[in-house]
Amino acid sequence: DVPLPAGWEMAKTSSGQRYFLNHIDQTTTWQDPR
């Protein structure tokens, strides 16, 4: 597995969808940043 870039975290919604948190610029995205 390729690790997420620095500052990123993967999370899941209550319905189980994956999303990605960027802690550096305080954004979220559905797109995997890798």
Score class of each variant (00 low, 15 high):
Met10Ile: 08
Glu9Asp: 13
Ala11Pro: 02
Ser14Thr: 12
Thr29Pro: 03
Met10Thr: 11
Asp25Tyr: 12
Phe20Tyr: 12
Gln17Arg: 14
Gln17Lys: 04
Ser14Cys: 05
Ser15Thr: 11
Gln31Leu: 08
Asn22Thr: 02
Asp32Tyr: 09
Gly7Cys: 07
Met10Leu: 10
Thr28Pro: 00
Asn22Lys: 05
Ala6Thr: 13
Ile24Met: 11
His23Asp: 00
Thr27Asn: 09
Gln31Pro: 01
Thr27Pro: 01
Arg34Cys: 03
Leu21Val: 10
Pro5Arg: 05
Arg18Gly: 06
Asp32Gly: 05
Pro33Arg: 05
Pro3Ser: 14
Tyr19His: 03
Ala11Thr: 07
Gly16Asp: 07
Asp1His: 12
Gln31Glu: 07
Arg18Pro: 14
Thr29Lys: 04
His23Asn: 04
Pro33Ala: 01
Pro5Ser: 06
Gln26Pro: 02
Gly7Ser: 06
Glu9Gln: 12
Thr27Ala: 08
Gln26Arg: 15
Asp25Asn: 15
Arg18Ser: 11
Arg18His: 12
Pro5Thr: 06
Trp8Leu: 03
Thr27Ser: 10
Lys12Ile: 08
Trp8Cys: 02
Thr28Ala: 00
Phe20Ile: 02
Asn22Ser: 08
Asp25His: 14
Ser15Pro: 05
His23Tyr: 00
Pro5Ala: 07
Ala6Asp: 10
Ser14Ile: 12
Leu21Arg: 09
Gly7Arg: 08
Asn22Asp: 06
Trp30Arg: 00
Val2Ala: 14
Gln31His: 14
Pro3Leu: 12
Ala11Asp: 06
Trp8Ser: 03
Arg34Ser: 04
Pro33Gln: 03
Asn22His: 04
Asp1Gly: 15
Ser14Asn: 12
Val2Leu: 15
Lys12Gln: 10
Gln31Arg: 15
Pro3Thr: 13
Pro5Gln: 07
Arg18Leu: 11
Lys12Glu: 10
Gly16Ala: 05
Thr29Ala: 06
Ile24Val: 10
Gln26Lys: 15
Thr27Ile: 09
Leu4Gln: 05
Asp25Ala: 15
Phe20Leu: 02
Trp30Ser: 00
Trp30Leu: 00
Leu21Pro: 03
Asp25Gly: 13
Ser15Ala: 13
Asp32Glu: 05
Lys12Thr: 10
Ser15Tyr: 15
Asp25Glu: 14
Gly7Val: 02
Asp1Asn: 13
Thr13Ile: 07
Pro3Ala: 13
Glu9Val: 04
Arg34His: 04
His23Leu: 00
Ile24Asn: 14
Asp1Ala: 15
Phe20Cys: 01
Ile24Phe: 09
Lys12Asn: 09
Asp1Val: 15
Gln17Leu: 08
Asp32Asn: 08
Gly16Arg: 07
Asp25Val: 12
Tyr19Phe: 04
Ile24Thr: 11
Thr13Asn: 07
Arg34Leu: 02
Pro33Ser: 02
Pro3Gln: 13
Tyr19Cys: 01
Ala6Val: 11
Trp8Arg: 04
Ala11Val: 03
Glu9Ala: 14
Gln17His: 11
Thr28Ser: 07
Gly16Val: 02
Pro33Leu: 00
Glu9Lys: 06
Trp8Gly: 02
Asp32Val: 09
Asn22Tyr: 03
Asp32Ala: 10
Pro3Arg: 14
Trp30Cys: 01
Ile24Ser: 10
Asp1Glu: 14
Ala11Ser: 10
Val2Ile: 13
Asp1Tyr: 13
Ala6Ser: 11
Pro33Thr: 01
Phe20Ser: 01
Ser14Gly: 12
Arg34Gly: 03
Gln26Glu: 05
Thr28Asn: 02
Arg34Pro: 01
Val2Gly: 15
Gln26His: 09
Thr28Ile: 00
His23Arg: 03
Val2Asp: 15
Gly7Asp: 05
Arg18Cys: 08
Thr29Arg: 07
Thr29Ser: 09
Ala6Gly: 10
Leu4Met: 12
Met10Arg: 10
Val2Phe: 13
Ile24Leu: 11
Thr13Pro: 03
Met10Lys: 13
Ser15Phe: 13
Pro5Leu: 06
Leu21Met: 09
Asn22Ile: 00
Lys12Arg: 11
Ser15Cys: 07
Tyr19Asp: 01
Gln17Glu: 09
Leu4Pro: 05
Glu9Gly: 15
Leu21Gln: 06
Gln17Pro: 04
Ala6Pro: 12
Ser14Arg: 14
Gln26Leu: 04
Gly16Cys: 06
Tyr19Asn: 02
Thr13Ser: 08
Phe20Val: 03
His23Pro: 01
Ala11Gly: 08
Gly16Ser: 06
Leu4Arg: 04
Gly7Ala: 06
Thr13Ala: 09
Gln31Lys: 08
His23Gln: 00
Asp32His: 09
Met10Val: 11
Leu4Val: 08
Tyr19Ser: 01
Thr29Met: 05
Trp30Gly: 00
